[in-house]
């Protein structure tokens, strides 16, 4: 039951109509993180349509997508794969104890040169 609601929630707050996808693969063709993804952007769109949310929530791609919006720019069908990926990532980090990075991880990762913008961005993406 829970999964059913989760799927419809993720679809709704992704804010994009994945049923319009024609499987052309242009989004993945343009994606700069393609080689660092186990499930590719066009597959995200297909798998969410099929309802395979569990598989997507375990994918590595939700952590390697750069939110660069190149896939959105290239899609001829007005689908936004980046928004699907972000919605799935949100579904993961909105769970209890599921943050990818925590405040206590930060000191070990920073040095004098890291801009605040990088820390806040990563926190907003990986921590809820």
């Amino acid at each position: 039951m829970e999964d059913k609601y989760l799927l419809s929630d993720v679809k709704r707050y992704s804010g994009t109509d994945t049923s319009a996808c024609m499987r052309c693969g242009k989004c993945s063709g343009r994606c700069p993180a393609y080689n660092d993804m186990d499930i590719k952007p066009h597959q995200f769109v297909t798998l969410i349509e099929r309802g395979d949310i569990e598989k997507l929530m375990q994918s590595k791609s939700i952590w390697t997508c750069l939110s660069c919006m190149a896939c959105v720019e290239r899609c001829p069908r007005n689908v936004a794969p980046a928004q699907v990926i972000e919605a799935v990532r949100d579904a993961v980090v909105r769970q209890q104890y599921a943050n990818k990075i925590k405040a206590e991880d930060i000191p070990a990762k920073i040095d004098e040169t890291i801009p605040q913008q990088l820390l806040v961005s990563a926190f907003r993406k990986y921590n809820k």
Binding site: W63, L66, S67, A122
Partner: peptide, 18 residues
């Protein structure tokens, strides 16, 4: 092209490549 953005915090190798 993207420089690797915020991913450099956790996966610096990706941002290096980009």
């Amino acid at each position: 092209e993207c420089c690797g953005a915020y991913v450099s915090l956790d996966e610096p190798a990706i941002s290096k490549k980009k």
